Simulated scan of single mutants.
Amino acid sequence: MRSSGEERQSVNPPSTQAMYDQLHFSQATRVGDLIWVSGQVGIDLADMKPARGMEAQARLAFDNVKTVLRAADASLADIVELTTFHTDLRGDIEEFVRVKDEYIRDRYPSWTAVGVTQLARPEFLVEIRVVAVAGSGDR
């Protein structure tokens, strides 16, 4: 028997509602304290346009992760696993790491970086997905 705290919840910040309605996926799913965040890209949710360059896209992607985690009552400090997908892994990794280290400053999560040939749109350079445990960053 499960407690009510373990029920599956879809997490969709208001700024992502159009994406949910059109593409039929949640930005995150929460079960108890575990949160799985869907891949976030370097797109401005206000105008749905991707930023130019790795640094700008990485910042927007991390900002989008932060927005989704906040809607799930969690924070960047609660990330326990980070998976990133890069269209130019070797060429962009150093720039990406600099941005990542601005958002995740200590108690670094497990991280897997994967080079891919393409993402959902040709302009996308990186996609970030995370798993978080709500409240674990405070412990």
Results as ranks from 00 to 15, higher is better:
T83S: 12
T16E: 14
L60V: 08
E95T: 10
A58H: 08
W111R: 06
S26G: 02
F62I: 05
A58D: 08
V80N: 06
Q118E: 15
T67C: 05
R30E: 03
D73M: 03
R98V: 09
L45T: 06
N12K: 11
E127C: 13
V31F: 05
V99I: 10
L119W: 00
A46W: 02
E7H: 15
S110N: 14
H86E: 09
E102K: 01
A56E: 06
I104F: 11
V97P: 06
R2K: 14
A58M: 09
E102Q: 12
V126G: 06
M19N: 13
G42R: 08
A72Y: 02
Q17D: 09
Q57A: 03
F85D: 03
S10Q: 04
V133S: 07
I43T: 02
Y103Q: 00
E94H: 07
L45P: 02
E81L: 09
R129W: 13
D63N: 10
A18M: 13
M48Y: 15
I43P: 00
R30Y: 07
A77C: 14
A134E: 10
S15M: 10
G39Q: 13
L119C: 01
R2C: 15
R121H: 15
M1T: 03
R52C: 15
S110M: 14
G53M: 03
P13C: 10
P122E: 12
G32W: 01
V114H: 14
D106E: 06
Y20E: 10
D106Y: 10
A18L: 10
R52I: 15
R52Q: 14
A58I: 11
R105W: 05
I104C: 06
E94V: 11
S38C: 11
T83R: 08
D44E: 11
A72H: 04
Q57N: 10
R2Y: 15
Q17I: 14
G91L: 01
H24G: 10
V133K: 12
F124I: 14
S136H: 02
G42S: 08
G137I: 04
V116A: 01
A120Q: 01
R105Y: 12
I79G: 05
A113W: 04
A18T: 13
F96T: 01
A51C: 06
Q17E: 15
A71W: 06
G137R: 11
G137M: 02
E81V: 08
K49F: 11
M54N: 09
V37Y: 00
